[in-house]
Simulated scan of single mutants.
Amino acid sequence: MNRYIPNQHGAWAMLILPFLLGLSVSGAAPAHVPLFLCWLFMYLFSFPVLQWIKTRKTDRYFKPSVIYGIVLIPLAVIVAASQPKLIGYGALLLAAFLVPVHYAKNKNERALLNDVVAILLFCSFIYPVVYVGAGSEADWARTTLLFVLLGLYFVGTALYVKTVIREKKNPRYYRASVAYHALLIPFAAALSLPLSIPFAVLLLRAIALPKRKMAIKQTGIAEILFAVMLYVCVLFFYS
């Protein structure tokens, strides 16, 4: 099943959180169902495709790529037919996908720049979610602030994860992660003072957890829990 299911547990938070926060701005609509399914299968499709490009193991990744592609195409057609303005967003995603393709081809998909591009792509999903739910009456100012908040949060998470896995012996990454998380607190407080609480917790995470021995799976699962904490706090204190 590891050919079909992405093994990056924290990525599921990036997949779901923009969708849920988008719903908190616009409210839910029936059209959100095919939109989210399309988004989900785009992510699932990208996983074997990028692994195929990276490893060139056609026998391993061809079948899952085809299966996900077969599911994805009709979903994309349904979304495009019901929401034609989202075709431009799809074209933007396709163009931006060339960045992870480049890094996968060069077997450097863990590069920080690649992480940042992926984060921005994931977080941008909040815009079509809000558009589908609210249309021309959407609160784009609040949506953009949530996009920025999510982007800053996930970039911090990318820095932190490197300090517990690939760069755990690099003090520069550790200092950068701690400083970055400290700077996020006043930004969150400016949006809503109680939002500084979850970001203070994230700062403590960045300080303390790299000094503990944690398995990669444990780190990923912990990030899902931290994402749930952030979602609940944003829902109650800002959205």
Rank of each mutant, 00 (worst) to 15 (best):
R3E: 14
Y4N: 04
Y4C: 04
I5W: 02
N7C: 03
N7K: 13
G10Y: 06
A11N: 03
A13Y: 02
L15M: 14
I16N: 00
L20W: 09
S24C: 09
G27K: 07
G27W: 10
H32T: 08
V33P: 04
P34K: 06
L35M: 12
F36T: 03
L40K: 05
L44F: 15
F45R: 02
F47D: 07
K54V: 08
R56W: 02
R56V: 04
R60C: 00
R60I: 03
F62Y: 11
V71I: 15
P74N: 10
L75Y: 00
L75A: 01
V77W: 01
K85H: 14
G88H: 11
Y89W: 12
Y89R: 11
A91E: 08
L93K: 00
P100M: 01
H102P: 01
N108I: 02
R110W: 08
L112Y: 12
L112H: 03
N114M: 01
N114F: 04
V116I: 15
L120K: 11
L120E: 02
L121K: 07
F122K: 05
P128S: 09
V129I: 14
V129L: 11
G133H: 02
L145R: 15
F147T: 09
L150W: 13
V155D: 11
V155S: 14
V155Y: 07
A158S: 12
L159P: 05
Y160K: 06
K162D: 05
T163I: 00
V164G: 13
K169L: 09
R172F: 13
A189S: 09
S196T: 09
I197R: 09
L203W: 10
L204T: 02
R205S: 04
I207R: 08
K217R: 13
T219C: 09
A222E: 10
A222F: 09
I224R: 04
F226A: 11
A227I: 02
V228K: 00
V228L: 11
F237G: 01
Y238R: 03
Y238M: 05
Y238W: 02
